[in-house]
Every structure is written in C-alpha cells, then in structure tokens.
C-alpha cells in the first residue's frame, strides 16, 4: 500500500485550471519531490493534500483511507509563505502549534526544550518572536512544524528564503526524519536540490503531470539516449543529422539526444571525422533539469537548474 495516493485531483480558479487531473503515489519511508516551475500548480496540489483547498474533483488517500483530520494531526506542514505571531514568545509559540495538533503536557514541553537546545535557542525561549533575528524565527518555524512528531512532513518550497545555515539545518532535519521512517513530501523548483534528496518525483507543468516515478530509474531511462559534450570548433553539422533527435548547443558544451541509444557510437564517429576537438564525451549522465527542459521546454525564468539554494 502507498503511504499517500493522489487521484485525479482537479482545481479551477475563476476560469483558470490550476490543477488538471493530477495523480501520483508516494511510497512509505521516502522523500518525494513535486517539481515544476513557479505557477505550475504545486502549492495548490499541496494545499489540497492538506485539505486547505477542497478539490473540484479527485481525492487524496492516506494508506488507503481518505485524508481527513487524523491525517492533518499527524502531518507537519510548512507552507512557502510562512509566519508566526510576532508578540508571542518562542516557547509559547511552539506549544501553541503542538496543542493545535493535540499534543500537550510535560512530554511535549520537554521535547520543545530539547529542540530549542539543539538549535541553540534555549536561552531565547522567553523572547518575543519579533525580537528574534530572521534566521532564528525560521528555526522556531521548523520546530513548530515537527514538534508533534508527525508521520508525514509536507514542505512547500522549503528552501526558499532560508539562509545557508538554516538550509543545512533543514536538510539535516529532513534526512533525520527519513531515517526514522517518516514520509517527506516537498515541492520545489530547484532541480539541483530535488535531484540530491528525492527518492521519487512527480513533475508538473501547467497543472498537468508530465513525469512521475522513481528518480533513479527516470534518470537511467533518459540518460541512455543523452550525450553531454565539451568541445572546441563547430558542431553545426549535427543539426538535422539522421541519428540525432535534438541538439542543445551552448557553444563550448552541448547536450545531444540521439534517436536510439545504439546511435551514440555513430555520433562519436562523426565528431571525430569532422575534426571537432572533444574534451569530454559522456553518454550516461543527465540532470533532472535537462529532463525537465526536454519535457516541458526551456522558459525564461521560473525553473532553476543551479543557483538558489545549495544543498
């Protein structure tokens, strides 16, 4: 049985279809990435999973049952737009969020104290949030998200707006939770980051799923037909070649996609014949970003292969 199953979710806003028949599954004990450009519908999908938006159609199943209040109680959610009560004190804030998830008493207080010590915030436990630095406020936000020891953690663009220190901290938390068998679901437009952390991914574009599955097998599938080339000279003659499906030329490097993996050798032969200086010729590596571009096309902004957060 899947930990989480999303079936045929649909959501329209004012005539615009934000999410169009989206289905995917999340295996137990894994890190799942929902990948797509800004505005692809990721946040709307996560909000429907969290029952913040009602879907126009479709359903979300948790271990075979419809997701309801019980699921929310055992889930930690960190939205992209996050905030805390400025006037509330640090410990009060954490305990307030714990109580919303039905956790109170000595045990959870002790856990809060442990987390505060671990994140070096213990001496600020009675400070008001507004007196904390932005980085420290983010730490309080993390603790509030996981204070109730959730089984599912849903993170919407978790690394946006984090300083490098907290980026590392959150990465540690995520890996730690994974080790403890929790299910982590996050959305991101940072391909780099998804590539390094995810076990399973679903790519969405314009509200539709364009690719879904285990990251390693997806990459293996795509890599077989892809060649990454570093060269000197001109490779213009490759355009329109009978073996090649597409050429993405950057001048000194290029990504070639062959029509079948058996043509890779042919391509190398042609390059040698045409006297191109070959610095590297790698035929079994492809990045998630390249896969995304191959499927959804390049766009000016919104998708980010490098840059942003470094994990």
């Amino acid at each position: 049985m899947h930990a989480l199953e999303v079936k045929h979710l649909k959501k329209r806003f004012d005539g615009i279809t934000a999410v169009d028949d989206v289905s995917f599954t999340v295996p137990e004990g894994s890190i799942f990435g929902l990948i797509g450009r800004n505005g692809a519908g990721k946040t709307t999908i996560l909000r429907m999973i969290m029952n913040i938006f009602l879907p126009d159609d479709g359903e979300v199943l948790v271990r075979g049952n419809l997701a309801g209040n019980e699921f929310r109680e055992h889930t930690g959610y960190l939205p992209e737009e996050r905030g805390l009560y400025k006037k509330l004190k640090v410990l009060e804030t954490i305990l307030f969020f714990a109580e919303l998830k039905n956790k109170r008493g000595k045990e959870v207080e002790q856990l809060a104290v442990d987390y505060l010590k671990r994140f070096e915030l213990y001496d600020r436990k009675n400070s008001k949030l507004e007196d904390l630095s932005k980085g420290n406020q983010q730490k309080v936000q993390f603790i509030s998200t996981i204070i109730h020891d959730p089984e599912f953690i849903v993170l919407d663009e978790p690394f946006s707006g984090l300083d490098p220190l907290n980026t590392n901290l959150l990465r540690e938390i995520i890996l730690d939770l994974k080790k403890r068998g929790k299910v982590i679901i996050f959305s991101t437009h940072l391909m780099d980051f998804a590539e390094r952390m995810c076990d399973t991914i679903t790519m969405v574009d314009k509200g539709k799923v364009i690719l879904s599955g285990n990251l390693n097998s997806i990459k293996a599938d795509f890599a077989q037909r892809t060649v990454k080339l570093n060269y000197g000279g001109s490779i213009d003659f490759l355009h329109g070649n009978e073996f090649i499906e597409s050429v993405t030329d950057f001048g000194q490097s290029a990504t070639l996609k062959v029509k079948d993996d058996k043509y890779i050798k042919e391509v190398l032969r042609i390059l040698v014949e045409k006297n191109v200086d070959i610095y590297s010729f790698v035929s079994n590596e492809i990045t998630l970003h390249e896969i995304f571009v191959a499927l959804a096309g390049e766009e000016q902004d919104g998708i980010n292969g490098k840059g942003g957060a470094h994990v």
Binding site: M50, N51, I52, E73, R82, L84, F97, Q141
Partner: peptide
Amino acid sequence: SNKIVEVLLSSVS
C-alpha cells in the same frame, strides 16, 4: 499579511 494563516490552516479548518 504575516502569513501565519496557512500554517494555522494545516491544523484547523
């Protein structure tokens, strides 16, 4: 405006 509301809405309707 403080964006607390979405955090709250993941716990309460």
